[in-house]
Amino acid sequence: MRRRAFLAAAGALSVGGLSASIANSRLAVQTPPDPAYTILSGTKHETEVFVRNRGDGPTALVVGGMHGDEKSGYRAATAITRWQVSGGTLVVLPKANQAAIRANRREGENGDLNRKFPTGETPETELARAIWGVVSRHDPDVLLDLHRSIGIYGYHESSVGQVIWPTDAGRASDHAKRTAERLNDAVVPWSMPLHEFRLGGEITGSRPMLVHKFAGDLGRPGYIFETTAFLLDLGTRVRWTKRAAEELLSHHGIERRRNS
């Protein structure tokens, strides 16, 4: 089940005190939303969603903090909440997994949050359903999910650092490739060739992850961005993550205003 048909089927989800029905979602798209709102209010998972609406144009959703110990992802996303954009709508969920962030653990009480989004099915936990409800509410044209790995892809076993993984929709692979090249040229020092960014394989919806579900159910461009903790301090990881987000958003028509 793909695109609008799936959103209609998911319309009964509850997003904290918000209705995630598609009818209400469409109203939210037509009427500029509030600068911020809260999902799962009054629970341990309560967290804010920030919205920058600058009129006509595409909508992008940026997510950080799916894993609570990946500080560069949620710190970069938190910084992005303060960005001004020249057009379109930028939606940011900077701290998706608040309980895991507070505990500084990858997983929360229900295990790995980013394994609770089966393609073609309802997300498996209350938090995952609320996050998918944000997708339903804003109906984004592109999704960025910001992460951090321990090692470097291809050099350390089971590590996926320094990779941009695109969905198999539109020109996502080309945009990811160009962004990796730009990062390697602009931010990765020549003395750190192992840290050059790579293009990952296309995401098709084959795994129960947020961006996989976005690809499988909606068929739209999305990206998982992974930097590495290997020989990189937190500040550097945050800077590289923000730069990657800026480049990818630009490819999709969301331009950051440089005074923000």
Rank of each mutant, 00 (worst) to 15 (best):
I224E: 13
S206L: 13
R198F: 00
T122L: 11
R237Y: 03
H195Q: 11
L144H: 13
F197K: 02
V238G: 04
D112E: 08
R178H: 13
E109M: 05
A244S: 13
W190I: 09
M66E: 13
R129H: 00
D34V: 14
I22W: 15
S41D: 13
V211M: 07
R148Y: 03
G170K: 08
L231N: 08
A79W: 00
K116E: 14
P140E: 12
R106S: 05
R82S: 15
A79E: 14
H175V: 00
N259E: 15
E70W: 08
T89N: 12
E246H: 06
A130C: 05
R207K: 15
E70K: 02
E126C: 02
S41W: 09
S191A: 12
F230N: 04
S21I: 07
T47H: 11
R2P: 01
F230G: 01
R4A: 12
V63K: 00
S159W: 03
L234C: 02
A10H: 10
A5R: 12
R220Y: 01
S149E: 02
D168W: 01
H212V: 00
V211K: 13
G65F: 06
G57V: 07
V163M: 09
F225E: 13
A128H: 01
G200I: 03
T228F: 02
G219D: 06
L7W: 10
R239S: 15
R82H: 15
L249H: 14
V211G: 03
E46P: 08
G42R: 12
A60T: 10
G17D: 15
G111N: 10
G108I: 06
L248N: 02
G219L: 00
P221E: 04
E246N: 08
R137C: 03
A36Q: 15
G154I: 04
L143S: 10
A215L: 12
K213F: 13
R243E: 15
N114H: 14
I203P: 01
L146Y: 01
A130K: 03
E124I: 07
R106H: 05
G42V: 07
V91R: 08
I80C: 05
N24M: 10
G253T: 09
A9R: 15
R3K: 11
G235P: 01
Y74D: 09
K71F: 12
H138D: 13
A186Q: 11
I224A: 02
V62W: 00
T89H: 03
G64Q: 11
Y37V: 05
D34M: 09
D112H: 05
D69P: 04
Y37G: 08
A103Q: 12
E246K: 11
K242V: 15
D139H: 15
K213T: 13
I101E: 15
R137F: 10
A244Q: 02
V187Y: 08
N259T: 13
P193K: 04
P221C: 12
A20E: 08
R256T: 08
I39F: 05
N184W: 07
A20H: 06
V15N: 14
G222S: 08
A229Q: 08
M192C: 09
K213L: 11
R2L: 07
G88V: 07
V51K: 06
